[in-house]
Design a protein around this nucleic acid. Structure first.
Lengths: 230, 230
DNA sequence: CCAAAAGTGTTCTTTATACACCCATGT
DNA sequence: ACATGGGTGTATAAAGAACACTTTTGG
């Protein structure tokens, strides 16, 4: 049974993923209900042991795919958690990632497997196992810091979005209110949004224009020293 | 000999440290000459296997102490490198840290052991083993990004410094030139420097005032939402 | 016609940038 | 006396912050 032997004791290594979504003007996190001990039936971040033939990033993508059936979304290494007793069983080091997904895509594609994954509003979280609350706090802190200087907010919205959705997103994540006119001017002045010429439909008010984020243009400008900032 | 057996195969886990110093107006990194195979006598970042009773941060501090005899300096987790073949022997995952040390302190205290550690100017590096060049690039990128928004530059200077030293530091790390008057005004307006009432001595020109960074005041202001920015 | 969200400009304040000369000290 | 780096102020441009009304649409 125990076939892998080493000269020195080794910690186990896992990968955990903080998967953020945004819907109904609130920030959400995907949690899974543990199916095994320890802490069976408690909520946890999706994760698993790293495989010998995969990088940590591969592992994080594998977990993302398993839980959401999504691939190719924004994903970034968050931090490596190595407290000696973070797992009651044995020494386990966790390399944590955070991902930003377009929640509508997920809702369309997932639901076809029976893992008990569920979206939780960031302000209505259950208690989590191990040090997962700490990991989640770290992820939120990172997201909050990063969204102002990199155009990652768009990763949480559908491809076409209206400016008020983008503003809602910033307001929720940064926990501030932003002046509508100043926000719109600032975003539009960057010239990173493509006007799709479409409008939202069937709303009981003036229909909003829909925009797309121009990733190619952003990449171009970045090379020339442009810095995104909200 | 191989006494530690597990049900599943496990990667080994190491900690590597990118230790930055600043002297003679240039940024330096501490490298060690490897004493063992593989790559014996090649230059590498200081590092070692993580111990079962220490966190990664403890490990990084242990390595820092071993190589420089310093403790309590600025240290922060950088990134975890997990490419499958980054080490030719076997799968080794490295949790990398970066540290900022006051190089003068080091020169005063170290030299009492015979490890072949040596400071290299960042622009005159030898080639490094494994993926250590990648780790170093990652560290420099992080340092460059971070120094503008957190007062970590002071960690590289002696306790008392003159403004031109601080400016040199920013110019070297950011790879730009900065207007002297604008720089001085910006730094002094923050009111985070304490005028020590001392001046440099024995220089063939007007003696510069010496300042200290007021960490307590910075911590206070941070709590109230102040953001350091150069 | 009413409710609900979209869309739009101007003024004022703050911050960033560009720029050149005199001062103190040791040799 | 001279070479070296220290120290200082102002004017202009750019960016940020504050603020209220009209428009479009479905019910």
């Amino acid at each position: 049974m125990k076939n892998f032997c080493y000269e020195y004791e080794r910690p186990a290594v896992t990968v955990d993923a903080v998967i953020f979504g945004f819907a109904e003007a609130s920030l959400k996190v995907l949690l899974i209900k543990r199916g095994i001990e320890p802490f069976k039936d408690k909520w946890a971040l999706p994760g698993g042991f790293i495989q010998m033939q995969e990088t940590a990033e591969d592992g994080a993508n594998r977990i993302l795919k398993k839980e959401t059936n999504l691939e190719g979304v924004f994903m970034e290494q968050l931090y490596t958690f190595s407290a000696v007793n973070r797992d009651p069983r044995e020494r386990i080091i966790s390399i944590a990632y955070f991902a930003l997904v377009k929640q509508d895509d997920y809702q369309a594609q997932a639901g076809d497997d029976e893992t008990s994954a569920e979206w939780f509003e960031i302000n209505k979280l259950p208690s989590l196992v191990f040090d997962h609350e700490k990991i989640l706090r770290t992820a939120m802190y990172r997201l909050k810091g990063k969204i102002r200087y990199q155009p990652i907010g768009f990763e949480l919205l559908t491809d076409k979005f209206k400016l008020s959705q983008l503003q809602d997103l910033y307001e929720v994540i940064l926990e501030t209110s932003i002046d509508k006119r100043n926000f719109r001017r600032k975003i539009l002045q960057m010239e990173l949004l493509i006007d799709t010429e479409e409008k939202e439909k069937n709303v009981a008010h003036k229909a909003a224009k829909l925009y797309k984020f121009d990733k190619n243009k952003y990449d171009e400008l970045s090379k020339k020293g442009f810095n995104f900032e909200i």
